[in-house]
């Protein structure tokens, strides 16, 4: 798998996992933080560095998945910023 494909695939998985937080503030933070994290490293070209970053990112993906699951297990009432349901 090409590096670029790998990185974009990881980004997508992290975004999907972040979206699954049921808690508004954690969800918004995770999305913001993932975007920020990937954009910060957009200029990195050294393959060894990229591999290391992808490794770290994969570890974070596991954390996000676990914690998003926990937030689903212990949901809370809707946050006022989540708007009205229709």
């Amino acid at each position: 798998m090409g590096e670029r494909t790998q990185v974009l695939a990881l980004f997508k998985k992290l975004m999907r996992a972040s979206r699954s937080f049921t808690h508004y503030n954690f969800r918004e933070y995770a999305l913001r933080r993932v975007r920020l994290g990937f954009r910060e490293k957009a200029g990195v070209s050294d393959p060894a560095q990229i591999a290391e970053l992808v490794g770290e990112g994969s570890k974070q993906l596991e954390v996000v998945r676990k914690q998003a699951l926990i937030s689903q297990l212990y949901p809370q009432a809707r946050h006022v910023m989540e708007g009205t349901r229709k």
Binding site: L8, F11, R16, R35, F38, R39, A42
Partner: peptide, 11 residues
């Protein structure tokens, strides 16, 4: 858009 935005659009 950049490549990350494109991923989000495809999602």
């Amino acid at each position: 858009l950049d490549s990350l935005d494109t991923v989000e659009v495809v999602m």
